[in-house]
């Protein structure tokens, strides 16, 4: 099996790690809630890609568990995005702002 290329896991895993790192960076650096949400989606997609890659290049034979997990991740990511967007709409309707720094009424 080649070390790198379409028939080796390395490339897929590298892309997944890169996606995950980008998502983490977006999630912790963005002040806008939509930006954080995009970061979370990137992290979830990185995980799905990783599952699919590990399933395809499993040690013995291709393992269906990884592909199954990836499909589940896609479905749950959609559900999570729907709930999160509904919540952000609720915040926006009340305060006209979804900036995390501006919505800070709750404190000790």
């Amino acid at each position: 099996m080649p070390e790198f290329g379409p028939d080796a896991p390395t490339g897929y895993l590298l892309v997944a790690a890169l996606l995950f790192a980008t998502g983490v960076f977006a999630a912790i650096s963005r002040r806008n809630a939509i930006g954080v949400l995009i970061g979370i989606e990137l992290m979830l997609n990185a995980a799905a890609l990783q599952f699919a890659a590990y399933g395809r290049f499993a040690k013995s034979a291709a393992d269906p568990q990884g592909q199954t997990a990836a499909v589940f991740v896609i479905v749950v990511a959609a559900a999570e995005a729907a709930v999160a967007l509904a919540l952000l709409f609720a915040v926006y309707r009340r305060t006209r702002d979804i900036d995390l720094e501006q919505n800070r009424e709750l404190r000790s």
Partner: peptide, 15 residues
């Protein structure tokens, strides 16, 4: 305040 709590919850929880 409930909406703000929910927003923080969903973003923390998603990460």
């Amino acid at each position: 305040r409930a909406a703000e709590a929910g927003m923080k919850f969903v973003l923390f929880g998603g990460v």
